[in-house]
Amino acid sequence: MSPVLVILQKEWADLRRHRLLLLSMVVPAVVFLLLPFALVILIPLIDPSGWNDRNVQRMAELLGRAEPDLRRVDPLLVFHIYIFRQFILMFLLIPILGALSIATYSIVGEKQNRTLEPLLATPIRTTELLWGKSLAAALPATLLTWITFGLYVLLMRALSPAGVLAHVVNPVGLSLIFLIGPLVAVLSLGLGVIVSSRAKDPRTAQQIGVLLILPIMALFIMQMRGFFLLSAQWVWLGAAVLLALDVIVLKIGARLFQRETILTRWT
């Protein structure tokens, strides 16, 4: 069996028994999944006229300009589309947080338990170890994102007015989930690897996540205020930038992942 697979298997066996870590991944996913439904149902109930505020109107205008068929639809439908699109951005926090948690727990955990020395005494290559750990973090985080999105689509189909789904599950939405999602997962785990080499406990290491969460939140708020509407071109440009960052971060990680460095410099 390839050493990468052995590590992957081991990491998942460990993850399965780490309830708290699993919970810390699943709970935000469930919240992001249900919150938009709560919002589109509750806001019009609580404030029957106020929901159609300036932000929503500006968004309707932007949407209308980008997608002409939305120009004459019911403002309430636009409101739904707007909220559901916004939350796709929030979904990007799932791979970021998930990959970061798994990577930092697995690396800092091995440091704390001093399991790295016997592991490095085996014939495994350090690149294989890094690959195993990276896949162990990126795959579940990405998978969770996709499952959440799948449920989102099913719920929208069941609960939302006709027409919403088609305007949410569009090229922008799909590329955010299926392209940007894995790319931010890799970036997040890469940063996790780098800070874990220095950090004494996983929580400290996870503070690096702010670097990724802040830009997503900025996008979320800017789009909410109607400053712009994320277009496919922007998403692809973002993907290109992320890909470059991923390569850089993984290269730095691989440089830190040397036997001697791990044993003598990772305090």
Binding site: K10, A13, D14, R17, H18, N113, R114, T115, L116, E117, P118, L119, A121
Partner: peptide
């Protein structure tokens, strides 16, 4: 090794 370094949850 000086410390056993075992995977505790496994």
């Amino acid at each position: 090794t000086e410390t056993p370094g075992l995977y505790e949850r496994l």
